[in-house]
Every structure is written in C-alpha cells, then in structure tokens.
Design a protein around this nucleic acid. Structure first.
Length: 254
DNA sequence: AAGGACACCAACCGCTTTCCA
DNA sequence: ATGGAAAGCGGTTGGTGTCCT
C-alpha cells in the first residue's frame, strides 16, 4: 500500500508535453511495446506505466487518425453502438486509426445527446428530455454550421403503448423493424457490413429475438449474452425458436 | 472587456481479465 | 491451482478553449 502511494506520488500527471511524447515514442520504437511499468524508469519519464501505455495507444502509435470523424465513421459508430452498446474497443476496432477513447468521447459529446433527444418520453425522463432539447438548442446557437446529421435515426420511434403485450407477432415485427431502421431505410445492414459479412438476414432470424430480449428499449444492447464475446471474430449468429416468449440466440464460431 | 456557462477531449481511476511463473 | 503483474476496458474528471451575456 505504501509502495502504491509512493509510486503515485512520484508519477507525473496531466497533459503530455511534446518532449515527453518524443521520449516515449523513441523508447517504444527502440524497445517495442509492453512492460509499461519499466518504461518510465528506463526512459526517464516520470510517468506511470498506465499513463505511458495509454499515451502510446491513443496518440503515439503509428497510423493513429486524428481530426474529426467523417460521415461514414459517424454512421458506423451509430450502427455499431446500436448493435453492441458501450463496447468501445470493439467499435473502435472497426474504425481504422481510431481508438476506443476517441470513439467513446465522440459518442458522449456528439452522438449521445442526439440519441437522448430522440428517446421516447417517460414520466421520469420527461425533464431530462426537455433538458437535452435545451442543450441541443444551446449547442445550435453556438455552432450553427454543424447540423445534426443523424438526428432522424433516433427521432422516429413512436410512443410505445402499454397494451403492447396484446400486439400480435406480425404487428410487433413491423414495429421492431420501423424502430430499428436507419436513415437510409436499411435494417441491421450496417451491422452486418461491419463484420465484412454478406448475409441475407431477415427479421425473423436476427431482429425479432434481439429486440424481444430488451423490448422496452429501441436502442437495444446485448445484455450479458455469451455470444457477445465472440463478436469480433464473429461469423454467424442465428436465432432459434419462434415462440415469442422463449427465443434465444445461438452463436456459431469459425 | 470580463466573467460565466458550456462543449470538448485528454487523461485518470478503478475494476476486470489475461498471462505467467 | 494460485497469486501477482500486466494489460484491457468503460466510466469519470478536470483543463482548456469558445461562445454568450
């Protein structure tokens, strides 16, 4: 414990200076990545290993892309997030040159507010909804040249009725399809393309079960699904069962 | 011009997972 | 099988710049 305190106290914190970047870059290029704990000692940087690792990973690594996200990247993030939730490293893995930290920040600052704005109102979230709207308005005043490019993705969800349980399956499928459509009218296409996977999906195979796993949330996530850990190497997943109350997902590994 | 409010984003924190002796 | 170190990850914080009043 004392050792930890000592190390923390000795570690320099805050923004990295260009000369520190240079030292770290030279060190890693000479000695390779890894053993970050020893990097600070050997390189002379008074930084913690974690800090060095993060700095390298997020900024100094070759092929890191800096600057604003393109429209394509933004769309991909939205689609991937719809599919994976806050799995930033997985999402970033599909955006060459982008880091999980960057994707996360971009989501939280640019995309999440649009998402919240589009969420349907509930009794408790009413105030939040209004607050978000207010924030967007303020942002618009500040940056009138930046339109909300993807806002329509999240603003099309209809109010969900309380007698939803009585809806027949076809009706439910249609609603699911409408709620999860992207701006271009495709459904899950982006997610499928993300995995370089050309598959003739249909709503029965993928959409309905997924949405039913979390029927109250149009921006669905994979909650604790055992298959999610295979997403990155994912080749095929398939729903089995047609009973709306007992559907599941089965994953197939390569 | 000055100060407050806000957005952005780099960096940090703490927990979890993986690796290895 | 186990424990410690390293790495990975997502959430959060805090500094800085910009805009508004």
């Amino acid at each position: 414990m004392e050792k930890i305190k000592e190390t923390k106290a000795q570690s320099k914190r805050g923004l990295w200076k260009p000369e520190e970047d240079l030292i770290l870059k030279n060190y890693v290029e000479t000695h390779g990545e890894g053993n970050w704990g020893t990097v600070s000692k050997r390189s002379g940087l008074m930084r913690g290993g974690k800090s060095c690792r993060l700095r390298w990973k997020n900024y100094l690594r070759p092929n890191i892309k800096r600057g604003g996200m393109s429209q394509e990247e933004e769309d991909l993030i939205i689609r991937m997030h719809k599919l994976l939730g806050n799995r930033w490293s997985l999402i970033a893995g599909r955006l060459p040159g982008r880091t999980d930290n960057e994707v996360k920040n971009y989501w939280n600052t640019h995309l999440n507010k649009k998402n919240l704005l589009g969420k349907r109102k509930t009794i408790d979230s009413n105030k939040q909804h209004i607050d978000n709207e207010d924030n967007i308005e303020k942002q618009d005043r500040r940056k009138p040249s930046q339109p909300h490019k993807s806002q329509s993705i999240f603003s099309t969800s209809p109010e969900r009725t309380t007698d939803e349980g009585l809806m027949d399956l076809d009706e439910k499928k249609q609603q699911v399809k409408e709620e999860s459509s992207f701006t271009d009218g495709t459904w899950m296409e982006g997610a499928v393309q993300c995995f370089n996977y050309d598959y003739d999906y249909d709503i029965d195979m993928i959409g309905t079960p997924l949405m039913m796993m979390n029927p109250d949330y149009s921006n669905f996530v994979f909650d604790e699904g055992p298959f999610t850990s295979y997403m990155d190497s994912f080749v095929l997943f398939e729903a089995f069962g047609t009973d709306s109350d007992h559907v599941g997902i089965q994953s197939f590994l390569p």
